[in-house]
């Protein structure tokens, strides 16, 4: 008889969602490391209105590529990824960065935690990590962390981490209601916990970005910070979003 855990593993279908905006340079290395380390996971690259060869590079690397007609931002790209994995019948999926910040060696850590949870967040600030950020960002993240802790009734050390895994029920929620603007990761945490899903955080190690540039300047960061504060305080996560 086949052990139960093994049978389970055979039937579970896992997808990797990679949002990519002009990441043709960094993407090939990421795709090849994924096909080395997790060959049985289906990779889907969301080409978020790139003007470079991102889509071609993604297909050459063996990934499924969904191309958006224009740039929607990371939240919009992710929501499309969630829609895709839900209607393709995947059981679970995880987000992965196109710029090489996330390490494939940490994927098993993330997925192992998904067995007892609906959603897993890989935290840069756990025990065996050495991740540094600037003081302004540090302050903003600290404030958001406290607010998220207050609203979710749970402690999170890394609210903006983009290294996350999801079970199907959360994927279904996010396919229609994923927050589509910048700092989506913070809103998504509150959305998932607010709807009663079990969200856990695990410490992971992360590398530096290999190519591309940081996506935001300080003033924009302040604007998005204020916007997220309003969203969180307005409590729109507690109501189903309008659909029209």
């Amino acid at each position: 008889m086949v052990p139960r855990a093994l049978r389970y593993r055979e039937t579970v279908r896992t997808a990797v969602i990679i949002p990519a905006f002009n990441e043709a340079q960094a993407l090939p290395a990421v795709l090849s490391s994924l096909s080395d380390q997790v060959p049985d996971h289906d990779v889907v690259v969301i080409d978020d209105g790139s003007t470079d060869a991102t889509a071609r590079v993604a297909r050459d690397g063996g990934a499924t590529c969904l191309s958006l007609p224009f740039n929607l931002g990371i939240g919009g790209a992710l929501r499309l990824g969630f829609r895709h994995v839900v209607d393709q019948g995947y059981d679970r999926a995880y987000q992965f960065d196109a710029d090489g910040q996330h390490e494939p060696s940490q994927i098993p850590v993330l997925l192992a935690a998904l067995d007892g949870a609906d959603m897993v967040v890989g935290s840069r600030f756990g025990s065996h990590t050495g991740y540094r950020v600037g003081w302004g960002r540090n302050l903003a993240m600290g404030l958001l962390r406290r607010l998220v802790g207050h609203l979710s009734g749970q402690k999170f050390t890394d609210t903006s981490s983009g290294f996350r895994a999801f079970g199907r029920p959360v994927l279904q929620l996010f396919a229609s209601e994923y927050p589509v603007e910048y700092m989506d990761s913070v809103e998504a945490l509150i959305l998932a916990t607010g709807r009663g899903f079990r969200v856990v955080e695990v410490p992971v190690s992360m590398g530096d970005r290999r190519a591309g540039r940081p996506s935001n300047r300080n003033l924009r960061l302040v604007y998005h910070f204020v916007r997220v504060l309003i969203v969180l305080l307005a409590g729109s996560h507690r109501r189903p979003a309008q659909t029209s």
């Binding site: 969301i46 969904l66 007609p69 224009f70 919009g76 829609r83």
Partner: peptide, 16 residues
Amino acid sequence: ERRIRTLAEELALLRR
């Protein structure tokens, strides 16, 4: 904006 986003998603899925 909400409608345009949804349309863009639908378009990408149809292309797929």
